[in-house]
Amino acid sequence: MYHMKPVMSATVEQLPTCMYKMKNIYSEWSDSAPATKDDLLISAESLLQRQNAVISKLEALQIKINSALEGHQSSGNSALNLSTTKEIVLPKEIVITCNPTVPARALLQMITNIKSEKKVLCVFYTHNSAKHTPCLDLSKYGFQTDIQAVTRCDKDMVVTWIWKECDECEMMISPIQQIKIVNEANICRYLLRVLGSYPNDAAAASIMDQWLDTATDLVKARNSEKTSTVEKISNYLSKSSFISGNNVGVEDLVLHSAFMRTVSAEQSIKDKVLRQWCSAVSSHLIL
């Protein structure tokens, strides 16, 4: 019925004598201790070949980098373009929540600036958690209560401003993943990038970053740290009328907003330079 094959082979299996077989590392020295001249030549040649391969690879990489840089320069941007890392597009709608007692004035000013360039619908609401009445009248910033707005869909962007009991100004980026941008300075930075008005020059961008971070620091810092930061701003302002140069820039707006929030009025009065700067920036704001 069945034709069977023998299970055991006739030949005797070679059984291992140890678990792992390894090369004897001493044998090279002990057995063939005096290496011949040919051997040495061969090893030196192979080393040379490997080194040459590495050098050629590095050269190829260099060419690639150069071509990439040239490509950017030819497209009209000088030096490193910051926005190339990932294309950020202007969102259809941004939702900003803000505490009514600490209004983000710089952000409001920025939105007003955007309004002059694009078709933007600004609406504002009050969340049921807000305990205080907002100290700013948003209709002065061109905001509407939703009811006055007739259509929403034909606008470039809708800005939804919600007065709500929260610590920091927040902007919702992804409602599904609950990703937010927290803090006024960071939201301003994001908006600048999205609008393409962030400095393209890496050096200028890092200076801008530095001032925006200073504003964040000012809000979060303890009293002892605050004085040093204020001194830093004051020192800079003694050389230049505004932080961004001769005109009021975003840095001035953001710093001013952080200033109004944290540093008490007396302290700003003490310093003449700061006082002048404050009033100069204030005159640019819609109040």
């Binding site: 709608e93 609401y125 969340h127 049921n128 209560t145 939703d146 929403r152 869909c153 919600i162």
Partner: peptide
């Protein structure tokens, strides 16, 4: 939770 005035969105949104 609610907003005042009531939030109004459009269908395409």
């Amino acid at each position: 939770k609610f907003l005042e005035p009531a939030l109004r969105l459009e269908f395409p949104e």
